[in-house]
């Protein structure tokens, strides 16, 4: 491999790479999201009443549901950006889908970890083949498969097309898994907050949950943004490497 041009070599550095280098090191959105998460955790643990029947275990609800909704947000971005990529062939859409896919896997892992932690004391079992649990598990498998596929294709445009096709087909598959699993009986609690009539939770808990959800969604967006920026920088470096190798 050839040595890369030094950053102060103005002739070798493209305008795009200079833009990447001049970006401030501190990611303010990520900082705000982390602070919001800390505040949300403190409120959930110390300033929210303990539920009468489930005890302290109920507090997992705030993390679990917020992480699930954030994962859906990230997966929605993957599906949407897959369609946009095949339509407009804009590499930014592909990079955004890639970033959202990785972040979705993190949040789905959080959902699948916090779920059993709550299930053991409340249901008496870590896992059950319940409709929603099964669906979430398969969302995890699909997301993992999507990321493995991305890692297994070297050509950038082929990778973008393949993963966009998988993203679209996976979005079509979800209703089918949903339909299949809803023929099972479900043990999972029904929606408590997001339902047509009044929430079946006291106001203090609603406030904690809404705060938690906002913090979690903010963290999700901040992570996708940071991952996207990394993708931009990585592609710039790759383009520079390719240009140097081609020039010799």
């Amino acid at each position: 491999m050839t040595t890369r041009a030094l950053p102060d070599d103005a002739d070798a550095a493209s305008p795009a790479s200079m833009g990447a280098a001049s970006r401030p090191l501190f990611d303010w959105l990520f900082g705000v999201a982390v602070l919001a998460m800390v505040a949300a955790f403190v409120r959930a643990v110390y300033f929210t009443p303990i539920e009468a029947l489930q005890g302290a275990a109920q507090k997992i609800y705030y993390v679990h549901v917020s992480a699930a909704l954030s994962a859906y947000l990230a997966l929605g971005i993957v599906a949407l950006m897959s369609i946009v990529y095949l339509w407009l062939r804009d590499e930014r859409a592909d990079r955004l889908a890639e970033s959202a896919g990785e972040v979705a896997l993190v949040f789905l892992t959080a959902v699948l970890t916090t779920g059993p932690l709550w299930g053991k004391p409340i249901w008496g079992t870590w896992w059950t083949w319940d409709a929603r649990l099964t669906l979430t598990l398969f969302l995890w498998f699909l997301t993992a498969g999507y990321l493995v596929l991305r890692g297994a294709v070297d050509d950038p445009s082929m990778r973008a097309r393949y993963s966009a096709v998988i993203g679209i087909l996976a979005a079509l598959l979800i209703p089918f898994i949903h339909l299949s699993v809803y023929l099972f009986n479900t043990l999972h609690p029904k929606p408590i907050l997001l339902k047509p009539d009044k929430p079946s939770m006291p106001n203090e808990m609603v406030v904690t949950f809404v705060g938690f959800f906002i913090a979690c969604a903010l963290l999700c967006v901040a992570l996708i943004r940071a991952r996207y920026r990394y993708g931009v920088a990585r592609d710039v470096v790759r383009a520079m490497d390719a240009a140097e190798e081609g020039g010799e």
């Binding site: 498998f141 699909l142 493995v148 596929l149 297994a152 070297d154 082929m158 089918f176 898994i177």
Partner: peptide, 19 residues
């Protein structure tokens, strides 16, 4: 067309075969 072809096909297909 990918590396990992033998592994990737089942990994991508099996979730789709569930229904």
């Amino acid at each position: 067309n990918t590396r990992l072809a033998e592994l990737l096909l089942p990994m991508l297909s099996l979730p789709f075969f569930v229904p």
